[in-house]
Amino acid sequence: MIEWFTTVQIVVAIVAGLLCLVLGLAGRTPADLTMGSLVLVEVLLVVQLVIAIIAPFAGNPPTGDLVEYYIYLISALLIPPAAIVWGLVDRSRWSTVVLGVAALAIAVMVYRMQEIWLHQVA
């Protein structure tokens, strides 16, 4: 795991989450900006997955449990697509709020993943 990348990922997810929450509560239906922010969150998760696969072979093993890390990562990977599909199907402002909730959930999960990789003692 690359610490600065993970930090960027958490910041992006929080910003995307707050953006979608605010725009959703202000009555906006899902649009390119809000849906796009979730696509960005998902792309960063895929990059995180690639990093996670390579890192242990590049002398960067997790201190914690790799299985737990992957369960978080795989669960996280499922959430943005689900929220985006939701936003495409249900075109109400609450879908924008749902996008925000999803992004904030990702922020929490990535934070937990970072703890597992960097600080947790197996």
Partner: peptide
């Protein structure tokens, strides 16, 4: 509509 958000949070918690 608010209920939909509730459902989304439930879904995330179910997954977690």
């Amino acid at each position: 509509g608010v209920g939909r958000v509730l459902i989304a949070v439930y879904a995330v918690l179910a997954l977690g």
